[in-house]
Design a binder for these strands. Sequence first.
DNA 1: CGCCGAGTTGAACTGAATCAAGAAACGTGG
DNA 2: CCACGTTTCTTGATTCAGTTCAACTCGGCG
Lengths: 181, 181
Amino acid sequence: MDIFKKIGGLSPENERILLGSIKKKSFPPKTILQKKGKVSNKIYIVERGIVRTFYYKEGKDITYSIAAQNDFTGSMSSFFMQKPSNKIVETIEESVLWEFEYNRLQSLFEMNQELSRAGRLFANYGISVMEQRFDDMMFYSAKERYEMLLQNRPKVIQNVPLGMIASYLGITQETLSRIRK
Amino acid sequence: MDIFKKIGGLSPENERILLGSIKKKSFPPKTILQKKGKVSNKIYIVERGIVRTFYYKEGKDITYSIAAQNDFTGSMSSFFMQKPSNKIVETIEESVLWEFEYNRLQSLFEMNQELSRAGRLFANYGISVMEQRFDDMMFYSAKERYEMLLQNRPKVIQNVPLGMIASYLGITQETLSRIRK
DNA sequence: CGCCGAGTTGAACTGAATCAAGAAACGTGG
DNA sequence: CCACGTTTCTTGATTCAGTTCAACTCGGCG
């Protein structure tokens, strides 16, 4: 899987071990992968489909993240810190995901030093991704961020309802509708 | 140091090793700790003083983070990913910082499995902190976030110029001035 | 004493939210 | 395969929060 390249490369042997301990699963649309208030014990890589993470604010739902092919998803901080999630994770369309299970991953880390190291590098990479996201949020207008989305992730634009994208960008659906003409 | 409690505890022996390989340093006000465009090879914990991280946008500077006692600071993603920083890090007042040097930290991680593990847990914690920050940004208004700052970090409010706090909250200095009466 | 940086205040302006209505697309069951 | 209902998207009118710009206050300090 391409994704492991990002985190600095595993030996073929350890890549095999890691791949052997994650599961590929298929989910129908609107499957809840993570409930609010529950501790997450799974995170995912998207092979196919789209997964959205969101929370409710004053009745409306606000999109926190949208994951498509090769993206990681799930309630990361709930998973890593084993604390209750404040977000809901749900498939938007029929999706095929690689599932990482918490206890299994932990025992890999305890047993295997190279995998533990990869876990550290992966988390570092995660920090960098989040910081980038934060920077984008502060630096660019909603319009610019919409154009970046259009540029970099056309599949998301095409397959996710406008309102969900709008709240992801931090604007209303009406404003996004106006932006795009 | 309290901070290590957060990351799940080291053995006394390893805590000693870690403490032995970081340096306590004092910096005058307005010292640049990190330049824009340079790869960061140091991160810090604040023992005393205040350190601000910011970038320039259309001539104005925008505060990205404000670190006071016991906070981590520095250009995290530049440090962890060893890529150029898009931000500047600067002391606001005279500050005493614990300095972590990149190569030194890496060799600790390579040599010592428990420290490498702590590094992984720390990065997980970092992801959680960033996610929380992002949640706050999406969930609360500037006014509410100002009140949280006032509640949780009065020292920052008292010692940092209003304009820097305003850009941290994502509003102008004038608006913040109005909020606070 | 007068300057300078920091903070406050006022007035006009602007971009986005809200409210409301209607059009288009979608899918589900008859 | 059509008809109906639901969801999604668009458009318009109004309102409102926050920005901008400009002037002014305040306190410290050479």
